[in-house]
Design a protein around this nucleic acid. Structure first.
Length: 424
RNA sequence: GUGGAUGUAGCUCAGUCGGCAGAGCCCCUGGUUGUGGUCCAGGUGGUCGUGGGUUCAAGUCCCAUCAUCCACCCCA
């Protein structure tokens, strides 16, 4: 068969058994997020390009080479969202929530878009579940956000996780550290790898991201950022860690944890799967105390995270595709029809059953035997059979699939009779 | 952007030295006028990813191209 259309590279069709898994996860997560006091927010899938370039930061891979950017007919530049934090911040400001008392807590679930080369656990359209807690600078909130993330994983049975935390300082202490790092690294350009050399100018902190052993050995000579933090940042990080301890969240400090987005301040964290998977990062987040101010709002502290749904599901089931024939949805009542007249009779009279249970009316024109097999595979408890005899007598044959018992049931008694069987 | 592997039925895959396109599962029909996961018999379904080349002959060899997967990179 030659198929005319194919899905765009790096996208997926989500259905059948896998869709059921997603829905199960999503319902668990909504429950947890509500218990942490988060309300859902749904923002547009695309925004003004400048929102992302200014917040995520030019110089990051995400905005430099991974955005789906297009021009509207009015000549304005838009981009599909590569992440959600910028959109949430924009919505927070645009809807006047700055005057909302207390901490504003939003969660989101939805598709994000990045023009990457697809790979295991990496897609061009992927899904994130995440939170943003806006309005508090307390390190206790940082810890609560991390705890919320681990609760999300626990809720769906994901264990074997590693939580890494770090602090990358604030505008008082980070700039001088970055300057020191840059001038130190400039003197050793010959010894770093090519990508590191370009980072020395654009974003020196990212040097710590490099997996090249030679680069890491060089960096070992330079003081880690934890030793360069100002007193306020040190206190913040200490209280953050103390609170995690009090919550019994297991974590490790990692000086090299520098995230790929520009807007983070102080706390950054990442949660990854312990198994040998390549794309092991399941969740990343941190504090961003200047972003809202940069977007034109009042200086407002905030913290959040976002987790990759595809990666979590893969971690849970250790596979992302079901090659087994996936089942169709389960029904309570399956109606076997002998012919087209019977189909019409069935829809007309069994329709009322749909107010109390799940009903499938078979309109495939295949034989009774095949329809009965379909009833079994749909796990129906009751089969109704309609042919010319039943139409003439205004009734259905009702078969209890568990006991095999079958009797005629008049239209008037149908709901009661079906419910009696389903109740058992 | 760079490198590697793989493309044969709806799905999972065989296909030898170049010689008629295959199996299992699924699906449909019958065995049972209108009744089940088992059993038996039969059947539908293929541009062998696509385009060229070599050859009497190409799923098989060569070239190109596309797609998918994997890795680098980056991240979720």
């Amino acid at each position: 068969m030659s198929i005319k259309y194919r899905k765009p590279k790096g996208t997926r069709d989500l259905m059948l058994l896998e869709m059921e898994r997603w829905q199960w996860c999503e319902s668990k997560w909504r429950e947890v997020l509500a218990r942490f006091g988060y309300g859902e927010i749904r923002t547009p899938s695309f925004e003004s390009t400048s929102l992302f370039t200014r917040s995520v930061g030019s110089g990051t891979d995400i905005v430099d080479k991974e955005m789906y950017t297009f021009e509207s007919k009015g000549g304005e530049s838009f981009s599909l969202r590569p992440e959600a934090t910028a959109s949430v911040v924009r919505a927070y400001l645009e809807n006047g929530l700055t005057r909302q008392p207390g901490t504003v807590k939003f969660y989101y679930m939805g598709p994000m878009f990045r023009y990457d080369r697809p790979q295991a656990g990496r897609y061009r359209q992927f899904h994130q579940v995440g939170v943003e807690a806006i309005g508090s600078s307390s390190p206790v909130l940082d810890a609560e956000v991390v705890r919320c993330a681990t609760s999300l994983f626990e809720a769906v049975g994901a264990d074997d996780l590693t939580v890494q935390v770090n602090s990358i300082g604030c505008e008082n202490c980070r700039p001088s550290y970055v300057d020191d790092l840059r001038s130190w690294a400039q003197g050793k350009k010959d010894e770093f790898c090519d990508t590191c050399v370009s980072r020395v100018e654009s974003n020196p902190l990212r040097l710590f991201d490099c997996k090249n052993e030679g680069c890491q050995k060089l960096l070992a000579d330079f003081k880690p950022i934890s030793e360069a933090l100002c007193d306020d940042c040190k206190d913040h990080h200490t209280q953050f860690c103390d609170t995690l301890d009090a919550l019994s969240v297991r974590y490790e400090n990692d000086d090299s944890l520098v995230r790929g987005l520009d807007y983070y301040t102080r706390t950054t964290f990442e949660i990854s799967a312990g198994s040998g998977l390549r794309q092991s990062a399941l969740c990343g987040g941190g504090r961003y105390d200047y972003l809202i101010g940069q977007c034109g709002g009042p200086t407002t502290p905030a913290v959040g995270f976002s987790a990759g749904v595809e990666r979590i599901v893969r971690h849970l089931y250790n596979q992302e595709y079901d090659h087994q024939r996936s089942r169709q949805s389960i029904v309570d009542v399956f109606v076997v029809c002998m012919n087209r007249q019977a189909q019409q009779f069935a829809l007309q009279h069994a329709d009322k059953l749909r107010s109390v249970c799940r009903v499938e009316i078979d309109t495939t024109d295949r034989g009774v035997k095949a329809q009965m097999k379909a009833a079994v595979s749909r796990e129906s408890s009751v089969v109704l059979i309609v042919g010319d005899d039943e139409i003439n007598n205004n009734q259905f044959q009702m078969k209890n699939m568990e006991t095999g018992q079958q009797l005629p049931v008049s239209n008037e008694d149908l709901i009661a009779a079906v419910q009696e069987v389903l109740a058992k």
